[in-house]
């Protein structure tokens, strides 16, 4: 375990010293704060704009960080030949993959924390939000974090056998169509061709379903408190069973992606 932690620690250090990270965080914070200006144009709905835009920025920039740093993690070790000195030490190849993964996940956690603080500050600045809203933002960000864990696992999986450009393309592709998982299943049910039905069913189960992580949004964050008389008609509530299901889904999928990545990485020759 100490080896995995050492590798994770070094990966965290590697990502923290990467300029791409700061550019992306800066962009996200600019987006969140620009929501303040946009909110003022929205006639009393400024909190909605801030939360909606802020959560969107956290999700998109978090995903970009996960993809663009994730795709290089293992590939760079091989390409720059740092993997030689590393694997000659008492380090299993699986420990290297898992350590790299945990290091980037920790980086994402810190980044999400920074961006979330930005969003909470913007929300606090406009005022008028229910105190519980600040906590509910954390719940939505936690789901986003789970989705980023999955994106990172996919990016790392691809980076065990392919170039960064291709890995980025594959991961981005899966991330985009992963948001249409439910549509894919519905399409399969509607089509008459049996082969198509099977194909849609297989794709539905193979492609990670990212819409699972979007069960909560601004409507949940800004739902009225019990003593408040005005209501938002479409306020969301949390179904604990559903959240547990999403967490379980994420763990299983991450474990699968990492196991496959480890299997490929184990079979590789380092010429």
């Amino acid at each position: 375990m100490h080896r995995i932690l050492a590798i994770a620690g070094n990966t965290f250090r590697e990502t923290v010293r990467d300029k791409i990270l700061y550019n992306l965080i800066l962009f996200a914070l600019v987006m969140i704060f620009s929501a303040l200006a946009l909110g003022q144009l929205s006639l009393g709905n400024d909190n909605k704009v801030i939360v909606d835009l802020g959560l969107g920025a956290i999700s998109i920039f978090g995903t970009m960080i996960a993809i663009f740093i994730g795709i290089g993690l293992v590939y760079k070790e091989i390409e720059k030949r740092t993997v030689y000195a590393l694997l000659a030490k008492p380090v299993r190849r699986s420990e290297l993959v898992v350590g790299k993964y945990l290091g980037l996940v920790f980086t994402l956690l810190v980044n999400l924390a920074v961006m979330t603080v930005g969003l909470e500050l913007a929300l606090w600045y406009t005022g008028g939000a229910d105190p519980m809203s600040y906590l509910r933002v954390l719940a939505v960000v936690a789901l986003t974090f789970l989705s980023l864990c999955l994106v990172t696992a996919l990016a790392l999986f691809f980076s065990t056998f392919s170039t960064p450009a291709l890995s980025a393309l594959f991961t981005l592709f899966l991330w985009i169509i992963g948001h249409f998982g439910n549509d894919l299943r519905n399409f399969g049910e509607l089509t008459k061709s049996e082969a198509m039905q099977w194909l849609c069913r297989i794709l539905y189960y193979v492609i990670p379903n990212f819409s699972n992580f979007q069960i909560l949004d601004w409507r949940y964050v800004l739902q009225p408190s019990s003593e408040n008389t005005w209501t938002i008609p479409y306020a969301q509530t949390v179904d604990p069973g559903m959240v547990a299901g999403v967490v379980f889904y994420c763990i299983v999928y991450v474990a699968l992606a990492l196991s496959l990545g480890i299997a490929i990485f184990r079979s590789r020759d380092f010429k």
């Binding site: 590393l86 000659a88 380090v91």
Partner: peptide, 30 residues
Amino acid sequence: HQEIGYLPENPYFYDYLTPVELLTYAGKLF
């Protein structure tokens, strides 16, 4: 591998680290 040392040909190490950090990292792996 706990008992051996290895210097690769034309070695390349993490260029964002300092010698102290690199050796500390290597030591932790042991």
